[in-house]
């Protein structure tokens, strides 16, 4: 499963970059994130509950932020393991300044699901993956906006 998208962030590129990588923000924006603990430089362990409607699985996950090129580029790698199987996703984020207080965010992702969910979920997995990723960036955008407004 793969896809891409873009959105406009209502903040300058440096500020956007900083907020996007703020663990507190990540915790808020990752769907079903119950707990996010820093375990190493740019590496977190998280308890995620991912899914749609009543169909949810709990995954013990690691989230790593890689290829940091402040303030333009980074890579987010998520690996999760749980009773329903495994989830692996890599997202690449590129930020382009769009004036003083606006930034264009482009993202692309690749996600793979293994085990039980892969065996039975084919009909909807692609769509749901897209939904989960879109949800993440949408929340990031909102969170950034909220922080900018309150700042």
């Amino acid at each position: 499963m793969e896809g891409k998208g873009n959105m406009v962030l209502e903040a300058g590129v440096n500020r956007a970059y900083e907020v996007l990588l703020d663990p507190a923000v990540l915790e808020k924006c990752i769907m079903g994130c119950k707990k996010l603990v820093l375990v190493d430089d740019n590496k977190y362990e998280a308890e995620l509950s991912i899914g749609i409607a009543a169909i949810k699985g709990n995954y013990s996950s690691t989230i790593e932020i890689l290829d940091l090129e402040e303030p333009r580029h980074y890579k987010l790698a998520v690996k999760g393991e749980g009773a329903p199987g495994t989830v692996e996703a890599v997202g690449i984020v590129d930020l382009t300044p769009d004036g003083e207080s606006s930034t264009l965010l482009n993202y692309s992702y690749e996600a793979e699901v293994g085990g039980k969910v892969a065996m039975v979920g084919q009909r909807m997995l692609g769509g749901v993956a897209k939904l989960v990723i879109q949800d993440f960036f949408k929340k990031l955008g909102k969170e950034l906006k909220r922080m900018e407004q309150s700042a």
């Binding site: 009543a54 169909i55 949810k56 039980k116 039975v120 979920g121």
Partner: peptide, 18 residues
């Protein structure tokens, strides 16, 4: 969770997806 006919819910519960 409401169960009526159970034709979707029961399989996903049996697979422990829900």
């Amino acid at each position: 969770k409401i169960i009526a006919g159970g034709q979707s819910l029961v399989p996903i519960m049996n697979m422990r997806l829900a």
